[in-house]
Structure formats: C-alpha cells, structure tokens
C-alpha cells in the first residue's frame, strides 16, 4: 500500500514537472468559449450501448485529452464529434453534441460540411496512395477549389504548419507512401488542416510512432492549439499530461471525471481516476 502511494507520488511529481510549462490554468479553461459541448450523449452500436450519458464541454483553443482503458468509449466519443460513426451500420446516438452551439445531430446538418470544420487524424497514418501534394490538396479539391495557385498556397501553408515543409518541399510529387511513419502522420495532420477546420480530432496519433517522432507530433500539437481546438485520444498518461490542458477520464462507457489536466493528475477527485492514472489497472 505504501509502495503504491509512493509510486503515485512519483508520477504526480513527474506530471507536474512536465505540464507546468504550457498548460492553461483552470480559470483560463472556464473563461474560454466552449467549442464543443456534449449533453447527455448515449451511443449504441446496434444493441450494445457504448456511451452512457456523457456530458462534457471542450473549450476553444485548448487541448483536451480523452483517456481510459481500451474499450472505454473514448474513441467512440471522438468519432461522434465528426459523425464518423455514421458509417457504421446500426450506430445510433441520443442526446446532443453542439459545435458552436449548433446541434450537429439535428436533421438539417450537412455531414460533409461538418467534417470540413472538424478534421481528423487517425491512429495509423493513412495517406492516400498519391503524391504528397495530392494528399494535402485533396480536401480543398473536393470542396471545390480548382485554381492551381490557390491549391499551391494551401499545400505549402499546411505543410509548414505541420512542420513537414522543410523535409518534403523538393519532392511534392513523390508518393506519400515513401515517407517515414512519423512524416506520414505529420502529412495526415497537414491534410486535415487543409480544409481549414476549427476542431482537430486525433485518435492516438502517436501510438504507432517511435519516441522521436512522437515528440515531434507533441510539439506540433502544442503549436497548433493556438489556432485550433484539439481533442486527442491517448493511451499514454505522460502524453496526456504533457500535451493537454483538460483531461477527461472514461471508464466502461461513462465519463468518470473531467477537469484541468494539472488537477486531474495531481488531485483526482475520483478513486477510479487515481487508480487508472497511477497504473493500478488499464
């Protein structure tokens, strides 16, 4: 028992030292406009209920980390925000998810329009089997941008934002599949930025990457949060502590606790949260 207590203390110290630099304060989180608000969200895969009465709000220009053990519903919740779950037959959502105070599940919502405003980066990098240029230009192209000069501009801007421009500027016409894993994931981020979204959803974006590439992605997330609202699902506690301002802990389809990351990792209110953060299960 004492051993566990000291272990958790150690982690808390570590978390403090890594988060203290850039995290937004609790007050700051509350003052900001709420970009995404979920109200009493229940989600079903056919008969199986994957989310139970989830209510939370995601402040603008912050990084919100969703943590919890496998199968806890954090990825499901993430995919509710851009309605990617619509692609699954038998999927059904009850409750409301508001984006800028508009319910994205109301009948009039144009899912295509929604997904342009809510970009997504997947767990496994999934560049299209096309050139680097075409990958980034795809979003604007399907949105109707035709002028080459305009596309060139978008491609360069997004690759720069994703910290990839220096590495690929000379070979934009080469296949995206020739890039390394970390580069591919940054390309996917650039591609998601190209539709000029407000919100960026990241589903364990660094879980398949080596530590160095992971660090680059994390730096990138930190830089991007000034311009975007970021929601990131992660299995990695240290990562959540390092990059996020707000953390939400999911367990068995329910939101157990949500709060400023510094608070969550230093003085969690729920026993379950503390157990998970300190690695007692999960």
């Amino acid at each position: 028992m004492t051993e566990l207590a000291s272990q958790s203390k150690e982690l808390i110290t570590l978390v403090r030292s890594t988060t203290i630099n850039h995290a937004r304060s609790v007050d700051d989180l509350l003052e900001r406009p709420q970009k995404v608000v979920a109200e009493h969200v229940d989600f079903f895969y056919g008969e199986h209920q994957a989310l139970h009465d989830v209510s939370l709000s995601i402040p603008a220009n912050c990084v919100t980390a969703l943590i919890g053990p496998s199968g806890c519903g954090k990825s499901t919740f993430l995919r509710c925000i851009n309605r990617m779950n619509d692609m699954i037959e038998g999927a059904r959502l009850e409750g409301e998810i508001l984006l800028d105070e508009i319910d994205i599940y109301r009948a009039r919502t144009d899912v295509v329009e929604l997904r342009k405003r809510v970009g997504m980066v997947f767990q496994k990098s999934n560049p299209f089997p096309k050139s680097i240029y075409d990958n980034v230009a795809y979003g604007p192209k399907v949105a109707g941008v035709r002028k080459r000069s305009e596309l060139d501009e978008i491609v360069e801007k997004c690759l720069r934002r994703a910290a990839l421009w220096e590495e690929v500027s000379g070979r934009l016409n080469e296949s995206a599949l020739q890039l390394s894993g970390g580069q591919q994931q940054r390309l996917c981020i650039a591609r998601a930025l190209a539709t000029d979204p407000d919100v960026l959803l990241m589903d364990e974006p660094a879980s398949a990457l080596d530590p160095k590439s992971t660090a680059r992605i994390e730096d990138l997330i930190f830089e991007l949060k000034d311009s975007y609202t970021i929601v990131i699902v992660t299995h990695n506690m240290q990562q959540a502590a390092r990059v996020s301002d707000q953390t939400a802990f999911f367990y068995e389809g329910r939101l157990v606790e949500i709060g400023a990351t510094t608070d969550m990792f230093t003085k969690p209110r729920q026993r379950k949260t503390e157990d998970y953060i300190t690695g007692r299960f999960g």
Binding site: M120, G139, C188
Partner: peptide, 27 residues
C-alpha cells in the same frame, strides 16, 4: 482497398461519390 482510405476521405469532407471516384476506383 483499405478501409482507412475510405475513412480518410470521408473525414476530409468528401462525399460518397467523390470518395468512390477519386480514391476507391483509382486504387
């Protein structure tokens, strides 16, 4: 064609028709 390609295309705001025409058929 990997499911990840479909998902990536839809997540970028492509319609079903655009996804089929620009991604699935070429692949």
């Amino acid at each position: 064609v990997p499911a990840s390609i479909r998902q990536a295309s839809f997540a970028l705001g492509a319609t079903k028709w655009q996804t089929i025409w620009h991604q699935l058929l070429p692949a």
